[in-house]
Design a protein around this nucleic acid. Structure first.
Length: 507
RNA sequence: GGGCCGUUAGCUCAGCUGGCAGAGCAGCUGACUCUUAAUCAGCGGGUCCGGAGUUCGAUCCUCCGACGGCCCA
């Protein structure tokens, strides 16, 4: 049974306005009009109509005759006695129509005038003209009723501001809040641009499984589901990484995937349980190449969406013309913590600093906290949020990079970087570990963590080890958080504002 | 998981110290054939998120719960 937001059943509980609208619907039916409409062939989009209108400023004496057929939702209505103005909205914009009793006939006029509301769909055939005040308008020669809206829309001026309702009833938000609509139009452009860019760079788009027999490729708790016919548990993927590298083993040496990942975590302005990532892999390339490609992509995207590589975000002006700033993980940490390189690797001095900062002690594993966990905690707390302009952080510790190859210069660090913008992690890339025996040792070490209670540590994926045994060429791979990127490019500060249907607690 | 804040008409919001529930928009009736937040006159519309308690009396105070936001973990 349908319910309102307080769990109350809706049947027979219509408001006065809904009852009135249903009565109007029934009157339309009684007059032989289908209140839910028929297809309306031959209409043009409002955007197309606008392109056909020549520049008419100042108002010319002889406007060329422009006839049009448009359809849309009535979003504004100004009634007079024997005529009214209605503003129609379709996917491409708004356009005013003028409906006069003496132009469409008394019978049709009375029927339409008395039974339409804001929110209804109508189709209009008419002739273009400019009003006294210069508003482009279609003078209706006939009106077709295309759909009754029996539930009133929010107020025309303030729109829908209740955040919860905007997320739960996005269809209303999209009708009445042009800013919201614009965010998603831009999101679609961003996605299209990225795909086109990657293809032009020689990448092949692939789709790998969303349901994994064993979760892997990241550190996160998975969602579990069950396949009945096989009678096995499956995990919604936390990352596509291990499958994409299998494809590189298979010979597709430049691949990318844009798709959803699922992580069984809480919500925040930057986290949704399902989110969109692009991961891509380039055989025979380096992390340097990844960073260069990332700079190129972000610069082009900023130009595409903003017409400039400078993008305003909150109080900041983000500069996406590369090259981006680079800092080393340990240099930055040593500086921010005012610790010597030696003390940076001593558990006691790290612990002292963590306690001094009032930070929670990370979970103890095998009797002792890892120095890498302490380092990472301090890095996250003291450095990440200060990285406003696009910044690559390089040289991540091996201990927190189980799929990355160790640096040839320093085996304690990996050839891995993360990109931060506006204090938020946007991308993560590295030289892939392609030594199967080393990868197996790392997996077994993660298994120990898992067995000692770390639910984010994945179990070993032995088929992935076999793929590495077949041979992964030297490969660089990167993941880019698409939702967060869209946030930056659309000026949004909550991930929920760039997701059409963010996850909400069911009512 | 913790702290703070919020939930009142279809929507946006007021509501003082506990004393008959308010406005604007939307709706209804009437006037109006160039308005664009149309205008003018009149009218209707409420499970004050839910439950319990205190009180003569609760939208308001207390407790429990639901949902949401922000911050922290």
């Amino acid at each position: 049974m349908p319910e309102d937001k307080n769990g109350q059943p809706l049947t027979g509980e219509h408001s006065e306005q809904e009852r009135v609208r249903r009565q109007k619907r029934d009157r339309l039916i009684a007059s032989g009009i289908d209140p839910y409409g028929e297809p309306f062939p031959g209409r043009e989009s409002i955007e197309t109509l606008r392109t056909r209108i020549p520049a008419l400023n100042p108002l010319p004496d002889n406007i060329p005759v422009i006839k049009s057929r448009i359809a849309g939702r009535i979003v504004l209505l100004r009634r007079f006695g024997k005529a009214f103005f209605a503003t129609l909205q379709d996917a491409t914009g708004r356009f005013q129509v003028y409906i006069r009793k003496d132009h469409i006939g008394e019978e049709l006029y009375d029927l339409i005038s008395e039974n339409t509301d804001i929110g209804d769909h109508i189709g209009v055939d008419g002739t273009f003209f400019l009003t006294k005040t210069g508003e482009p308008t279609l003078d209706a020669s006939s009106v077709t009723f295309l759909g009754k809206s029996v539930h009133p829309l929010p107020e025309k001026w303030h729109g829908l501001t209740d955040i919860e309702q905007r997320y739960r009833q996005r269809y209303i938000d999209l009708i009445v809040n042009p800013q919201s609509r614009d965010v998603f139009l831009r999101r679609a452009r961003i996605l299209g641009f990225i795909r086109h860019f990657m293809e032009s760079e020689g990448f092949m788009e692939v789709e790998t499984p969303m349901m994994h027999p064993s979760p892997g490729g990241a550190l996160a708790r998975p969602f579990v589901t069950h396949h009945n016919a096989l009678d096995v548990d499956l995990y919604l993927r936390i990352a596509p990484e291990l499958y994409l590298k299998r494809l590189v083993v298979g010979g597709f040496d430049k691949v990318f995937e844009i798709n959803r990942n699922f992580r069984n975590e809480g919500f925040s302005p930057r986290h949704n349980p399902e989110f969109t990532m692009m991961e891509f892999y380039m055989a025979y390339h380096s992390p340097e190449d990844l960073m260069a490609l990332t700079e190129k992509l972000f610069g082009r995207l900023a130009m595409e969406i903003h017409g400039s590589t400078s993008v305003p975000y909150g109080d900041d002006l983000l500069e996406f013309s590369g090259p981006f700033k680079r800092i080393s993980y340990f240099d930055a940490l040593a500086q921010a913590c005012a610790l010597s390189r030696d003390n940076l690797f001593r558990e006691d001095s790290l612990l002292k600093l963590v306690k001094k900062k009032g930070l929670p002690i990370p979970p103890v594993r095998n009797g002792k906290p890892y120095t890498a966990d302490l380092q990472n905690l301090l890095f996250e707390e003291m450095i990440e949020k200060t990285l406003i302009q696009p910044t690559f952080v390089t040289g991540y510790p091996r201990a927190i990079s189980p799929l990355a190859r160790s640096s040839r210069q320093d085996p304690e660090i990996t050839d891995r970087f993360e990109l931060f913008v506006a204090g938020v992690e946007i991308a993560n890339g590295f030289m892939e570990l392609n030594d199967p025996d080393e990868q197996l040792r790392r997996f077994m070490s993660q298994l120990e963590s898992r067995n000692s209670g770390d639910l984010e540590a994945p179990p070993p994926d032995m088929d992935y080890i076999r793929a590495l045994e077949i041979g992964l060429p030297p490969t660089a791979g990167e993941g880019i958080g698409i939702d967060r990127l869209v946030m930056l490019l659309t000026g949004q500060h909550s991930i929920r504002d760039v997701l059409l249907f963010p996850q909400m607690r069911p009512l």
